[in-house]
Amino acid sequence: MIPILGLAVGVVLGLLLDPSVPVWLQPYLPIAVVAALDAVFGGIRARFDGIFDAKVFVVSFVSNVVVAALIVFLGDQLGVGAQLSTAVVVVLGIRIFGNAAAIRRHLFRA
């Protein structure tokens, strides 16, 4: 309940305030969002599996975001920022797909 509420309030706040993304944050924000989405899907799957642990969720959420941003930052420093961004997005996308498949199996038993 709380996560759904938090998401909804965050989306509404973001739409209402409509702040402009600072330039230094622009390359990292999309990756961070995708990483956080991955953590959220992982949390939902764990919830269905009955092994959800708040601590694990919080830590994985934060570490996902930080690691994803760090990878992109490193990539930028090395001159391969775009490629590494793509790599991170691909990996996270695969994980999200996996988690979504597990959730689907739980929900529809198929």
Partner: peptide, 25 residues
């Protein structure tokens, strides 16, 4: 549990915020 719930709320709120902002930009 309460702390975790609060943290989860804050994190998801941040996620929703970042999501909306990113979509907008």
């Amino acid at each position: 549990d309460r702390l975790a719930a609060a943290l989860i709320g804050v994190l998801t709120l941040l996620l929703g915020f970042a999501f909306a902002v990113q979509v907008r930009s």
